[in-house]
């Protein structure tokens, strides 16, 4: 009984605690936003792990899909529910913002999934290093395309998302952003877990081990690649949408290769093909980034150095291709997560 519901219990307690603390403003805005970025980073790193870890491809343009999700979600939200210079008065009654918000974020995710096709189609024929280039090129294409859309701000960026959050808080006063980030984080981890442990998802691992052999064993590799790339980029889009609403401002420059590298660092820090590793690494990495903030630019020397040292001594990352339950078998008595 406890084993069955312990994960739900822990998550509910954690979520309730964060919401309670945020509601009574015990937590400062700074700590709250660090917590929210942690959630976004978990979404990003676990979704990239789907491609880089489970499928064994080398994608280094994850921030591009995040960018699509961020822009679609914020433009849609601002157009529908907020007063803005560009779009004028809100189209719908701001009271509905509360209910429409998850739909908006999901719409961003779907748009990003469609952008993922940009990588999925070439991946039928290409593999390895060549596919890496395609993902980099896709990242540049997306950023460059958005920079050229002057209607939504171009390279100056886009803002006004605070209006949507205010509309939500006016309807029912609750800290909505932490709640949604929490829900979507759990949603995406759950989706990935369900996906890779399903019968269909076993094919993802088969591609990683030997694509030709998998194809001979009647695994439809093209279909699996398409779906996996779309799922991964779609979740990245969800992460991007949340990221945009937390910051209240997006510009294409913040989704460049450096951001993609940041997500990649989290995946390799945690260990490829390990979901719990990705989550752990995202949490650790966010804390590390915040701790090193006073160092300013030195931060970007320390973090790569940490990763280089990690690569030298434990190249498989913290968890190294294993889940938490496999590393500590005794924990299995206390929880079950599927």
């Amino acid at each position: 009984m406890l084993r069955r519901y312990s994960v739900h219990l822990i998550l509910a307690t954690l979520g309730g605690l964060v919401v309670y603390l945020a509601y009574n403003e015990y937590l400062g805005l700074y700590y709250l936003s660090v917590l929210m970025f942690m959630g976004v980073n978990i979404i990003l790193s676990s979704s990239l792990n789907l491609v880089n870890g489970y499928m064994g491809e080398f994608s280094c343009g994850h921030a591009g899909f995040m960018c699509v999700g961020a822009y679609v979600a914020s433009v849609l939200g601002v157009w529908l529910f907020a007063r803005d210079r560009v779009f004028g008065a809100p189209v719908l009654d701001p009271e509905y913002a509360l209910y429409a918000f998850p739909v908006i974020i999901l719409a961003g995710g779907i748009a990003a999934a469609l952008a993922g096709l940009l990588v999925a189609f070439p991946s039928y024929k290409t593999r390895g290093d060549y596919l890496a280039i395609i993902t980099i090129a896709a990242n540049y294409i997306i950023i460059s395309a958005i920079e050229n859309m002057s209607a939504i701000g171009g390279s100056r960026g886009f803002m006004g998302m605070k209006g949507v959050i205010n509309a939500m808080e006016d309807t029912i006063y609750l800290p909505w952003m932490p709640i949604w980030v929490f829900i979507f984080t759990i949603f995406s981890v759950w989706v990935i877990r369900r996906y890779v442990s399903s019968t269909f998802g076993k094919g993802v691992n088969a591609i990683s081990q030997d694509e030709v052999a998998a194809e001979i064993m009647s695994v439809n590799t093209n279909k699996i690649k398409t779906i996996t790339f779309m799922l991964s980029s779609g979740l990245a889009g969800i992460g991007g949408g949340l990221f945009a609403y937390i910051l209240g401002y997006v510009n294409p420059g913040s989704f460049n290769i450096l951001k993609s590298t940041e997500i990649m660092v989290m995946v390799y820090l945690g260990g490829m093909g390990s979901l719990s590793g990705s989550i752990l690494a995202a949490i650790l990495f966010t804390i590390l980034l915040e701790l090193l903030r006073p160092l300013q630019i030195i931060k970007w020397i320390v973090i790569p150095l940490v990763l280089i040292i990690l690569m030298q001594f434990r190249p498989e990352g913290i968890m190294g291709n294993r889940e938490l339950g496999q590393t500590f078998p005794r924990l299995k008595k206390f929880y079950r997560f599927k």
Binding site: F58, L258, T261, M264, V265, Y268, I297, I298, W300, I301, I303, P304, L305, L307, I308, M311, Q312, P315
Partner: peptide, 30 residues
């Protein structure tokens, strides 16, 4: 070279290269 001598996976060397690039950039900036 240390990674190569250990026979590490090619991908880990690529990550190391990426990180070396970041270090060069930001060391210069600092």
């Amino acid at each position: 070279r240390p990674l190569r001598n250990k026979g590490a996976h090619r991908l880990y060397v690529v990550i190391t290269a990426l990180m070396c690039g970041l270090i060069l950039q930001h060391a210069n900036l600092a």
